[in-house]
């Protein structure tokens, strides 16, 4: 019934696909390993394995490839900026001039690769977030970070903080909306006046919101304590993460595809050259 109901972080879409069913630890690790593919790519044809991988991921997670492509939209500006930077500031063989700016063939290649690299990174991360619930993600991250507990890094506390933060985002969103409406109905005006006046107009919204966040935090802390929560104490899980043979298989595929793509990168241009020669004769 509330506006914030349509609000979700990471755009997690529940599903029954192969990727959905994987252990979050497997998915997070796989993401980091798979990132090697676009990062090892240095020439345009090197990106073919990356695109192929993304296609396989989209099929195995029941996300349409076009949807995955769209997930890069929010970073298009960043990509354009990086591309421009590489395009105009890479020294090398000049192919065109735009006023005082020189465009080199090396610059074109670099701009192209850099853009694709960022785009692939975003798409892979999106595939992870779409198929992993925030709670699973927090749980997976906790377990992956657990070796750091040896050096007194508060891993379980941080995971608990993530869990609670995720739980409270919609609540606080709704709360700020309510306070805003209440102040508008008392005549608050956010639209007129200079910058300072407008900034000041937000005090009646921010002050109550902060007060509420702190009261809530206080109440929540009491409630958690009364439910036997002790920071740092050993906790067990309702749904413990279970590494199945699927996860091992998926991991093996990931490693294999990285190796394959590295091999591809090494030989594709030689192969292409050979093919070109062959067609010449």
């Amino acid at each position: 019934m509330k506006l914030s109901n349509g609000f979700s972080i990471g755009q997690f879409v529940p599903g029954e696909s192969f990727v959905h069913s994987l252990d979050p630890r497997c998915k997070i690790t796989a993401l980091f390993i798979l990132l090697a593919i676009p990062f090892a790519a240095e020439k345009p044809l090197d990106f073919i394995p990356a695109v192929f991988c993304l296609y396989v991921i989209s099929a195995a997670s029941h996300i349409r490839f076009t949807k995955l492509l769209r997930s890069g939209r929010p970073v298009l500006f960043l990509i354009a900026f990086t591309a421009a930077l590489n395009l105009f500031w890479t020294p090398g063989h000049e192919v065109a001039r735009l006023g005082p700016l020189r465009i080199t063939s090396e610059g074109v290649t670099l701009a192209f690769c850099m853009s694709l690299r960022i785009y692939c990174l975003v798409m892979m991360a999106a595939a992870l977030m779409v198929t992993t619930s925030p709670m699973d993600f927090a749980g997976g991250a906790e377990r992956l970070m657990s070796p750091m507990a040896v050096v007194k890094f508060p891993v379980s506390e941080i995971a608990m903080m993530m869990t609670i933060a995720l739980r409270f985002i919609p609540t606080l969103f709704e709360e700020s909306e309510r306070i805003m409406k209440a102040q508008i109905s008392r005549g608050a005006d956010f639209e007129s006046g200079g910058l300072v006046k407008r900034a000041r107009a937000y005090i009646p919204i921010l002050a109550p919101l902060f007060i509420q966040v702190f009261t809530r935090a206080d109440c929540l802390a009491t409630a958690m304590e009364s439910r036997c929560y002790v920071p740092g104490a050993q906790r067990t899980k309702l749904n413990p993460l279970i590494w199945t043979s699927r996860d091992t298989a998926a991991m093996a595929c990931v490693v294999a595809s990285v190796v394959c793509s590295l091999v591809w990168n090494r030989y594709i241009y030689r192969l292409a050259a050979l093919l070109c020669q062959g067609s010449l004769f």
Binding site: T163, R167, R227
Partner: peptide
């Protein structure tokens, strides 16, 4: 002010997990 987790059963499990 007392619900800790985003999923119903996970919130119920919070106490026993502790």
């Amino acid at each position: 002010d007392q619900i800790v987790a985003s999923i119903v059963e996970e919130d119920v499990a919070f106490g026993p997990e502790n």
